[in-house]
């Protein structure tokens, strides 16, 4: 991550992801009927709902702490990938589900954007993050 513009873009994406994920938490933890209905269809009610809610909460927090942004983005992207799979396989896209599904895709996109901008901060990928070798001229040229 070099230019300040990219940094700002990354922060916008982080805030967007955290905000969208954060506002669904209320429905999950408060056992809103619609949320219960969704997780019943997935066969995860109630433990899965609480577990995923907890993971999303963690992802939101990590996304906003500077030293852990990439980890939050990684977790968020995984959770949203799961949500998208859910929509594809079980939930479908009709009616209000379309809105929920699009929000999941939006958060997924935000998390991936953050990850791409901050790929140098990913811990295990260091090995492939070296730049392509640049050309070095002969000393006298």
């Amino acid at each position: 991550m070099k230019s300040p513009k990219l940094k700002i873009l990354s922060w916008i994406a982080q805030f967007a992801a955290a905000a969208i994920m954060g506002q669904t938490l209320y429905f999950k933890f408060a056992a809103h009927p619609e949320s219960v209905q969704l997780f019943t269809e997935l066969g995860m009610e109630p433990h899965g709902r609480l577990l995923i809610g907890a993971f999303e909460l963690i992802a939101c927090v990590l996304l906003l702490i500077p030293s852990s942004i990439v980890y939050g983005a990684l977790l968020g992207a995984c959770l949203m990938a799961g949500a998208i799979i859910g929509h594809i396989t079980e939930l479908g896209w009709e009616g209000p589900r379309l809105q929920l599904g699009s929000l999941a895709i939006a958060v997924f996109a935000c998390c991936i954007t953050t990850l791409i901008i901050r790929r140098r901060e990913l811990p295990l990928l260091k090995a492939i993050q070296t730049e392509k070798p640049t050309k070095r001229a002969r000393p006298k040229d």
Binding site: G43, M44, C78, L79, A81, G82, I85, T89
Partner: peptide, 21 residues
């Protein structure tokens, strides 16, 4: 794991997602 998540239990997708990554 995707098939297991689809047919057996959605919980298998906790495995599917990292495996896709």
């Amino acid at each position: 794991s995707f098939l297991a998540g689809w047919r057996i239990s959605f919980y298998f997708h906790f495995l599917t997602v990292p495996m896709i990554g």
